[in-house]
Amino acid sequence: MLAYIDKIREISRRLLQEGTVDMVMGFRKGTVPMMNEPCFVKTPEDVDTFVWDSNCGINLANYLTNRQEKIGIIAKGCDSRNIVTHIIENKIKRDQLVIIGVPCKGMIDRRKIQALFETEIENVIEADGNITIKGRGLEKTLNKKDVLQDNCALCIHRNPVIYDELAGDLVEEQKDVDRYEDIRKIESLSPEEKWRYFDDLLSSCIRCYACRNACPLCYCPTCFVDESRPQWVGKSIDSIDTRTFHFLRAYHCAGRCTDCGSCERACPMGIKVRLFTKKLEKDCLELFDWEAGMTLEKRPPLDTYRPDDPDDFIK
């Protein structure tokens, strides 16, 4: 994965030199371990600020919404699927974009890694599928496979589904992945147990909305939780209001969520918010044979109607 960077810089430089795009969106090196910062570059000289490693988990499609420029964008599998969704939903035009596809091998979970150690991690070096952690009196090498973000460990679309340039050879997709073990477990709980489960899950939520704001799908000019006339949801950290926010947001993402994991990655409290969206992803797959963002040719199940729908109630 690290090897992609030369190619990413080369393509970006060319696009900027030739004036094909006004800017390229990518990542620059972060100031703390296991963090990179989304950034844009507008001149060929600046492309060397781009980096690529296993800390580029934030979904860059989020930065495309309603932009007017011609944009080069570095896209992992999930970013590319959210770009597709963005195009279908008229948030950006296909011909505004030059998509630099990056076949992905998964992003690492900084919280999972920190939780393994008592000492604060101060430096992280990545090489050959291994992650070496350093801190005061601490040095340890982990297998990257063991510390992936949960969504990356289960990802079955690592290759970009739409691209104009490629920064590396396509990778082999993971096979025989059981994507919904956790969801089936929750489904099997009794209503009371579910209630308690969600209460626990959300007990530390501070309603900051980082999950929502990190999500490329959540582009509504005014989110329902921010409406004041009428005010649908209270603004305190009352557990019912908090739950309402999460449940409703998940429904708004049904058939659109690509399980990119940006929401979960962004949450300052480490809440597993993907559990909500994944349930709906599972339903969409089982009921409509639908995976979000795989093609520009079809509209998502919840904004379309087919006369030959097999269900009677709709006729």
Binding site: C208, A210, K235, S236, P268
Partner: peptide, 22 residues
Amino acid sequence: FACINCGTCTYVCPTCWCFDIQ
């Protein structure tokens, strides 16, 4: 550019004081 306006920085901050009355 990168900011997603999530407010996390202000909620975790010991010196941020702004509030809203409801």
